[in-house]
Design a binder for these strands. Structure first.
Lengths: 94, 94
DNA sequence: TTTATACATAGGAATGTATCTATATAATAT
DNA sequence: ATATTATATAGATACATTCCTATGTATAAA
């Protein structure tokens, strides 16, 4: 089944989720580490992580008790480029 | 004041609004013409247009009784590129 | 094998969003 | 002036989303 661009944009149109993505920009973090950067409770962070994961923006790996999340930057590139190409003439995209 | 990327992504994370953008891809249309492509009532279309306009994704011009809308593709390019650059190393963006 | 820790899931309250109908406003035609 | 047409706005309702607390599950430690 095709990737749902709408799901991607819904996922990134929340400031807390974008902040999570920024935290994961160049390092993996587990849920507790992510929580330390927010006032939200842990289940709320887990919810945002599940939205991001469901859109393939992050992936996760369990190691011991912790679950580590990482950013999938290829997905961001593909979605942003794909969306642009839907609306902007290719030659305008330098 | 700085442009609100979150407002842009909220605006484009609705399939009806994306469809409006597609309709406006290479021609201006007035509200009635846009309405013909939807099952929604005219006030709902007006609402979606106002969300798009508020995010600077479309602009409008009144001519006689009609209001014509057009796509602002520069905004799309800037937002998509800006967002990517926030998360993806520049050199990875070919 | 009980206890503690890390995380996810369930359920509910508050808030936001999409859509409708009804109505207001603005431009044009009669 | 009045009626008609195009669009926007207001208000109501249904639905979606965010956040919370409470609880379940899996792993590790005691």
């Amino acid at each position: 089944m095709a990737y749902d661009l709408n799901k991607f944009f819904k996922a990134i149109s929340d400031p807390n989720r974008v902040k999570i993505m920024e935290l994961l920009k160049d390092k993996e973090l587990n849920v507790s580490e992510i929580c330390q950067h927010f006032d939200m409770q842990q289940p709320s962070v887990s919810h945002h992580l599940s939205v991001l994961k469901n859109a393939d923006i992050v992936s996760s790996a369990k190691r011991g008790k912790e679950v580590y999340y990482r950013l999938d930057s290829i997905c961001i590139t593909n979605c942003c480029n794909g969306f642009q190409e839907q609306f902007v003439e290719i030659e305008k995209l330098k």
